[in-house]
Design a binder for these strands. Structure first.
Lengths: 194, 194
DNA sequence: TGTACATCAGTGAACGCGCGTTCACTGATGTAC
DNA sequence: TGTACATCAGTGAACGCGCGTTCACTGATGTAC
């Protein structure tokens, strides 16, 4: 990789770092080009040599978040291969919960309505990759189920967990501590798998 | 009520009607004062004699949505008193699903991050009122549970349903038909209640 | 009933700001010979 | 190795637009006498 290519990659990462920091602090609704430029130490024009536009930048921030989330689930899976599937799924749901709690703004940016509609295919694929990790685990529980049936059940499980995390941390009904929510997930997980 | 008071109320309703129509068509992210003024046949200044600001208007649109949603659940409850609790909760969850599917933009506005933070107390109470309807139904299933325990279980149920509706209709993992989602809710409801 | 005044909703031009995006220009890096 | 040219990232002022909000003014409705 030439000097220029390296510099480009470094710059691109700096920009993404800055954007991510801003989203983490204030939410994706406050992401704007000027602040990113200032925080990453370049001019506004430079942002546009590395990203098509603000939406493109936001999408790449989200892509990073999904990658970090996937890595967090990887960790759990590595350290938790002994127990039964239900226990492993609980642990993964717990990790999801912890990630959302510890990275609230970047996590909720993943589901924000102000993202470009429709989402570009590559980014939907990022979401799907994360989902397939859960689906695959669940698949081993129901080896005889047809694929589409198993897929649907996995989605329902994923969505239920998502709802518990999402509503638990939004302020619509008051926030609940992550530990409380994780306990609830542990309580209902066996029922969701039967 | 004097002529002036009546006219005020009519105007206020016209404004809310227009705002609701705009949100229903384009989402709350596209709500703006000028369009509301045009659609309700008054000037921009008039909006401010009836609402404090754009956020206030948006909050009242959401309050209306919650009221309509509550009315939809009322209907279900009235026509569905025969069966068991699980059946009734399924029917209510189905009505929630249908409402969200048939009023997607106004429904999702309820959970949007761009609402003023923190939410005003009166509007959080609107959310709570809706939630308590589910909680009350569930309460009769577990009469011996302590109140806080029953409350938590109701929230988990509510949140799980919410997640299934929410992720099912967002495009992150592809949209699913409302009927499919309702079938999934029927499938897991008994498990969630045990 | 009539008159004078007060109150208050409605008006829309204007203000001001935030912000995405562009573009002519600069200077550094790469390339051809 | 040196020279001339091409390529390309960086710069930041400027453009243009959307949009929330204000305000001096108008005219209708209510009120006091």
């Amino acid at each position: 990789m030439g000097v220029r290519e390296e510099a480009n990659e470094r710059r691109r990462n700096d920009i993404l770092d800055a954007a991510e920091r801003i989203v983490a602090e204030k939410g994706i609704g406050h992401l704007n080009i000027r602040d990113v430029a200032r925080a990453s130490g370049c001019s506004v024009g430079t942002i546009y040599t590395h990203f098509a536009d603000l939406d493109g930048l936001a999408l790449h921030v989200n892509a990073r978040t999904l990658a970090r989330l996937a890595a967090a689930l990887d960790d759990v899976e590595r350290h938790d291969q002994g127990g039964d599937i239900a226990g492993q799924l609980c642990a993964m749901a717990g990790a999801y919960m912890d990630f959302a709690a510890g990275n609230y703004h970047v996590w909720s940016a993943l589901f924000e309505h102000r993202m470009p509609q429709p989402l570009p295919e590559w980014h939907r694929e990022d979401h799907f990759r994360l989902f397939r990790r859960i689906a695959g685990k669940l698949r081993t529980l129901h080896p005889n189920l047809p694929d589409d049936e198993a897929f649907l059940r996995a989605r329902t499980l994923y969505a239920a967990i998502h709802g518990i995390v999402s509503l638990g941390m939004a302020d619509r009904l008051g926030r609940l501590p992550a530990e409380t929510l994780k306990a609830e997930i542990r309580r209902i997980m066996p029922n969701l798998l039967s």
